[in-house]
Design a protein around this nucleic acid. Structure first.
Lengths: 102, 102
DNA sequence: TTACAATATGTCAGTTATGACATATACTGC
DNA sequence: GCAGTATATGTCATAACTGACATATTGTAA
């Protein structure tokens, strides 16, 4: 099974913690995916707290609604870089980001 | 001044903290760069602690010596994703990564 | 139900990151 | 000085990510 497929499955329904055994991911692979999922969730949370639609957030960060949706869905084509930049744009601090990742 | 140039300069000699004012980066931009630099430094530190050459590390993570050098130099063409994956491969935990970023 | 807003999913052309390679520079011991 | 090793820098073809768009699905209020 290729990595893309794995990540795509990983975020669908399978709650963090059981992902690894089910898909036989290495420790590093699952840590990486868990980090991305944590950032995804924080993004949605932050956006909602600010009462923004995906389209509005997209405009603010010069992206598109579809990409925001993919970020929040933990889509494997989304980089950590983009997630981090978006969260910073939403006012998150390095410290909070650090805590989110852990 | 374009972003590439900024980041390239940012890592050369100008110690974190004065970067922002000197290059008039936004708060988010400098936070992003500071995070990358922190990860870069950790990578070099971890690699050296394990007594690995850049070439050896490169082989372990299926990359190249030149890319490892660029990672450690904070080169703007290096993504956070690659830095994170490399650090995970070196045995770093999510928790440590979180602390590094903060 | 219907109508509308929000979100999700698929695709794709343009951009950026990547590994690989060549080559330059720095570092070490002789 | 010289050799040998490690690291740095530049370039390039390929791969991965990106915003944009179309369209589907879900949510929600009347």
């Amino acid at each position: 099974m290729d990595k893309r497929k794995k990540e795509k499955l990983a975020k669908k329904g399978w709650k963090v913690g059981s992902v690894a055994e089910f898909l036989d991911l290495s420790a590093e692979e699952s840590a990486y995916i868990e980090m991305k999922l944590a950032l995804s969730e924080k993004l949605r949370e932050r956006r909602r707290r600010k009462k923004l639609t995906q389209a509005e957030l997209a405009k603010a960060i010069e992206s598109s609604q579809s990409r925001v949706a993919k970020m929040e869905a933990g889509d494997p084509t989304v980089s950590i870089d983009l997630l981090v930049k978006s969260l910073l744009a939403l006012g998150m601090s390095k410290k909070e980001l650090g805590r989110t990742i852990s």
